[in-house]
């Protein structure tokens, strides 16, 4: 039971972080299908720090901070690909995002394999990064419950996002650019700048989400596998949450629960006795999200201008 709670909170943190990232981007008017890719690159950045930064150097706080900064920076850098293509060159945002997802997995695999090959002199051609010791610093044990500092990070991200989006001038301007960029521009808001800010924020949060995901249950990661559709699940969470931080948090908890169930269902006698194949549990989050979307999308509150490149000539 505690295990279920722990995994639910962890996966909910991941979904919350990434979905908030998507929320920033879409609120500014840029559809970010590339969240999955941003997660992979963010995870790569964080994992490299975890592998190469010695644990003795400053202990847990330094390790956590360095990992967060590295994955956020990697995510932001990667999200620039989307920002430049979609904002400056008015490229199709869906294609760009899809390309980014493929690019991230391929690039991460090539990079990690090259590093492993070079480090081992050609013996190790896997795409794994191992970070057992560093991962231990993230965890504080309360009895059976493993508290992960990243849960706190997600909570802080939620509060900050709420404040930024609804209590600050910046947030109002950002939302205006997603609803009606022409109107925003006419009162002197730089739409391009706002959209850059939105996409970069999604890179930051998506990157952190990536590192939280790969450190959630395991202490090594095979980068060939990417992040197994978690970025897309986060998008569903965002849509279900109607692009609003608090609702997104609740949606993330729900989806996190079903995802966690797949990890720990063997611990429950009732579920174990049902004797369902594990694939059913793996499928569950996706089926639920599809059903939920089918029921809730009719009155969608999506930002009105999302997906449409802003052209100053259309004012």
């Amino acid at each position: 039971m505690i295990l279920l709670l722990q995994y639910t909170l962890l996966f909910a943190s991941v979904l919350l972080l990434v979905a908030l990232g998507g929320c920033f981007s879409e609120r500014s008017g840029v559809i970010n299908i590339g969240l999955e890719g941003i997660m992979v690159i963010g995870a790569l950045g964080g994992a490299l720090v975890m592998k190469y930064l010695p644990v003795e150097f400053g202990g847990a706080p330094v390790m956590i901070l360095a990992t967060l900064i590295a994955s956020a920076a990697a995510g932001m850098l990667f999200s620039l690909l989307l920002a430049v293509a979609a904002i400056h060159f008015k490229a199709d945002q869906t294609i760009t995002g899809t390309a980014m997802n493929m690019l991230a997995t391929a690039a991460a695999t090539v990079a990690v394999k090259a590093m492993n090959t070079a480090a081992s002199g050609g013996h190790d051609v896997s795409s794994d990064i191992v970070y057992t010791r560093a991962r231990d610093t993230f965890i504080v044990r309360f009895g059976n419950f493993e508290f992960n500092w990243f849960m706190l990070v997600a909570l802080i991200a939620l509060i900050v996002s709420y404040v930024v989006l609804y209590k600050m001038r910046f947030g109002l301007r950002l939302r205006a650019c997603g609803e009606h960029p022409q109107a925003a521009d006419s009162v002197g808001i730089n739409v391009y700048k706002m959209r850059y800010a939105g996409v970069l924020a999604s890179g930051l949060l998506g990157g952190i989400g990536g590192i939280v995901y790969i450190t959630a249950g395991v202490s090594s990661w095979k980068f060939e596998n990417g992040v197994a559709g978690f970025g897309f699940l986060a998008l569903a969470v965002m849509i279900f949450g109607q692009w609003k931080p608090i609702k997104i948090a609740l949606a993330a908890l729900l989806f996190g629960f079903f995802r966690a169930l797949g990890n720990v269902y063997t611990g429950f006698d009732l579920l174990k006795n049902l004797n369902l194949p594990s694939q059913i549990y793996n499928m569950l989050p996706y089926i639920i999200s599809l059903l939920v979307l089918a029921l809730t999308s009719k009155n969608s509150l999506a930002p009105k201008a999302e997906g449409i490149p802003y052209d100053k000539g259309t004012r």
Binding site: A85, I95, T98, A99, M102, T105, A106
Partner: peptide, 18 residues
């Protein structure tokens, strides 16, 4: 590694957006 090809083809899609 062989994935260099998928890197190239994903780069090509990315550029196709332009």
């Amino acid at each position: 590694c062989a994935q260099i090809s998928s890197l190239i083809s994903s780069l090509i899609i990315f550029l196709c957006a332009f």
